[in-house]
C-alpha cells in the first residue's frame, strides 16, 4: 500500500480524477445555470442518455466525432426546451416532470439503440492531445495537459461560467430571476426568457456530458449507461453551493476520490480493505459535505414557478 504515495500512482489518480470529472462537470455546470434561474431539472440523466446515444449513433454512422457531438448538443437543446416548456409555461411540479424527463430519455435511448444499432461495436473516440510545451512539463504535463479535447472544453467552461454569471448583464439577470423573479419582472426582465435560456443551456450541456461518455470516456453505448451520473451532477450543484468554482471543486473531489478508491483496490493486493469499503468513499464524502456544508446560497425561488398575477 505504500506505493499509493509514489509519484506514478499520485499522477495516475490526478489524471484519472480530471478525466472522470468531465461528464460531471458538463452536466453540473449546465444544471447550475438552470438552478440559478430557479428551475431544478432532475431530467439531466435522461438528457445525458439521449446525448450519449445520439453521439454514439452518429459517430458509428458518419465517423465524424464533431458532428456527433453537435447532434448530441442539439438533442440536449430540444430536451432542454421541452423541460423549459413544462416548468415555465405549464408550471408543472419540477421534481416530478424531471423524473418524467429521465424516464423518457432512458426509454427512448434504449428503444432507439435496440431498433437502430442492436449490438454495440466500440468506436474510436477523441484521442488525447498533448499541449505543446505545457504537455512536456514532468508530472504537471502528464496530469493536466495530455487529455482529449472534451476534457479541455469542460474545464474551459468553468472560467466562462464564472464570467457570465458574475460579470455580465445576462448573469445579473439570471441571479436576480432565481432569487426574486417578481423583482426582475418589475424591471422589464423576462423571467420566462431567462429560464428558457438557462434550462435549455443546461440541456445542451447534459447532451454534451452524455456525448463525452460515448465519444471520449467509454467509446461504447449501453442502455442506462449513465447509471446515476446525471443525478450526482444535480447533487454536485447543491454540493458546490451554486457557484461554478464550487461545482467544479465538487466534481473534482468526487472524481478524485473515485480514482483513489480504484487505485487502493489495485494496490491492495491482499484485500486488506474490502472493496465495498473503498467503493463507499465517494458517497460517504458526498454525504458528509452535504450534511456539514452550509447551504446559504440556494436560490430563493428554486423550483417555484413564476406567475405575475400570483403575488
Amino acid at each position: 500500500m505504500s506505493e499509493l504515495f509514489s509519484l506514478t500512482v499520485l499522477t495516475g489518480i490526478a489524471y484519472s480524477g480530471i478525466r472522470l470529472a468531465t461528464p460531471y462537470l458538463f452536466a453540473a455546470l449546465g444544471e447550475m445555470f438552470a438552478q440559478r434561474s430557479g428551475v431544478v431539472n432532475l431530467g439531466v440523466e435522461g438528457i445525458m442518455l439521449m446525448g450519449a446515444f445520439t453521439a454514439f449513433a452518429m459517430a458509428t454512422w458518419t465517423g465524424n466525432l464533431w458532428f456527433a457531438l453537435f447532434c448530441a448538443a442539439f438533442i440536449g437543446l430540444l430536451m432542454g426546451l421541452a423541460m423549459s416548456f413544462i416548468s415555465v409555461n405549464m408550471q408543472a411540479e419540477q421534481g416530478i416532470s424531471g423524473i418524467g424527463m429521465h424516464l423518457f430519455g432512458l426509454g427512448l435511448s434504449s428503444l432507439l439503440f435496440t431498433k437502430f444499432l442492436g449490438s454495440t461495436k466500440a468506436i474510436t473516440g477523441f484521442q488525447p492531445i498533448k499541449i505543446p510545451l505545457l504537455g512536456d512539463i514532468p508530472v504537471i504535463g502528464e496530469i493536466f495537459f495530455n487529455h482529449n479535447i472534451l476534457v479541455y472544453l469542460a474545464f474551459l467552461l468553468v472560467p466562462i461560467a464564472v464570467w457570465v454569471l458574475n460579470k455580465t448583464t445576462l448573469g445579473l439577470k439570471i441571479r436576480a430571476v432565481g432569487v426574486k423573479p417578481e423583482a426582475a419582472d418589475s424591471l422589464g426582465v423576462s423571467v420566462s426568457k431567462i429560464r428558457y435560456l438557462c434550462v435549455s443551456f443546461g440541456g445542451v450541456m447534459a447532451g454534451i456530458a452524455g456525448a463525452s461518455l460515448t465519444l471520449a470516456l467509454i467509446n461504447l453505448f449501453q442502455e442506462n449507461m449513465t447509471s446515476g451520473i446525471g443525478f450526482i451532477a444535480v447533487a454536485l450543484v447543491y454540493f458546490g453551493g451554486w457557484t461554478p468554482v464550487g461545482v467544479t471543486l465538487g466534481a473534482l473531489l468526487f472524481s478524485l476520490v473515485n480514482a483513489l478508491q480504484l487505485w487502493i483496490q489495485v494496490l491492495d493486493k491482499d484485500k486488506v480493505i474490502p472493496s465495498d469499503f473503498a467503493l463507499m468513499m465517494p458517497y460517504v464524502l458526498t454525504i458528509a459535505v452535504l450534511a456539514f456544508g452550509k447551504r446559504t446560497n440556494q436560490p430563493a425561488a428554486l423550483t417555484k414557478p413564476f406567475d405575475r398575477g400570483s403575488h
Partner: peptide, 11 residues
C-alpha cells in the same frame, strides 16, 4: 410525460 417515458421503456 411519465406515461410516454414508461411506454418507451416498455417497447
Amino acid at each position: 410525460t411519465l406515461s410516454a417515458g414508461a411506454a418507451l421503456t416498455a417497447c
